[in-house]
Design a protein around this nucleic acid. Sequence first.
DNA 1: AGCGGAAGTTACCGATCGGTAACATGGGTG
DNA 2: CACCCATGTTACCGATCGGTAACTTCCGCT
Lengths: 203, 203
Amino acid sequence: MSVVRAEDSSSASEPVAKPRVRDRIFETACELFYRHGIRAVGIDAIVCAANTNKMSFYRSFPSKDELVADYLRHKDVLFWRWWDAVVAPFEGQPRQQVEALFEAHVNKTCSKESRGCGLANAAVEIVEDEHPGRAVVVSHKSEIRRRFRALAAAMQARDPEPLGDALMLLMEGGYLARLTFPKGGPVASALVAARTLMDAHGA
Amino acid sequence: MSVVRAEDSSSASEPVAKPRVRDRIFETACELFYRHGIRAVGIDAIVCAANTNKMSFYRSFPSKDELVADYLRHKDVLFWRWWDAVVAPFEGQPRQQVEALFEAHVNKTCSKESRGCGLANAAVEIVEDEHPGRAVVVSHKSEIRRRFRALAAAMQARDPEPLGDALMLLMEGGYLARLTFPKGGPVASALVAARTLMDAHGA
DNA sequence: AGCGGAAGTTACCGATCGGTAACATGGGTG
DNA sequence: CACCCATGTTACCGATCGGTAACTTCCGCT
């Protein structure tokens, strides 16, 4: 993703059927990182699960840290794609948009494959400021806060900033709770709580 | 903690001035685990930071996993000690108790040394069911849920379970947010949000 | 003075970590 | 056919991982 191939260059413009190895590795890595955590998954495990070898890995990625950053960037892209899709049907109706977001969030987070939010999990695992994934996590969470506050403002709520922050806390709390409660537990109450908060803020 | 010393035995009953090494190691480990994460801290790092050596470590602890479990049990004890102390002045006034909890929670979580909740962080890092620390995390979070629901019920709220769950989500969300926002960010809104929710539930 | 137990020291174990060099193979295109 | 480029293979690097053996040193107690 961030690692640019030196050239696509030359002849054909055909965007179809690019080489497969890099993508196979990347997909495998994404799944392993999400399911078992970043630090828990070594290069050998990735490479082995992708039915390839370490050399092929290091021909496609400069380092594990950079792969992790790519993984997080990918999660970021998917997240906002999801968000925008959920929100789209209610253009101009911020209150309905937030309700739709929380309904989708509850569904997603309660599914049995869910391990919460990959980016939030990375916030726990990656402490070093120099790690290339750190910036991805920080900007992702900042954007979430910004959007929730913007939605709160758009719905003409009293005190939109605290409302936006509270909505964010509800959502993030759900991610965390998912990790200890089998089918999501408290997450199920996130939608009604969000509704209650918005009502109380006159939106 | 969980590792029982074979005997304190013999002569004096003096409870003062127990041997120091084990405790030195344990305190050091607790701080390192909290600050840098569990997987990120190796035995050598602990032992070196505690000015001792690996043999002394393995004379006091059966394994790293067991040390981790002890660390989590310790965090659990401290947490409930904190909780009970915060709640004590408002015996029989559940609404005030929750407000006091959230005020204390915001203060604690916004302090610059905070790295959120050690047990929540462990929920991210420890995935394997067999890990002795896993059960500690699960029972800790279950107890939090139970207590919040009990408080919600005690304050005669309508729909006490969803309210209790929502309060838990707010608190957990704050722990997570703390990891990406410098001084806590959205956490600051947790108290007002909790108040708003309780008001809306008629408590 | 002498004993015991707690702690320190050194060296080691096999496994795994992230990362690399050199070389073999294969398939597609000129 | 020849060439090239993407893959696969093997072996290796130094560092670190969690964990152990054997021996020494020190301190308090009787």
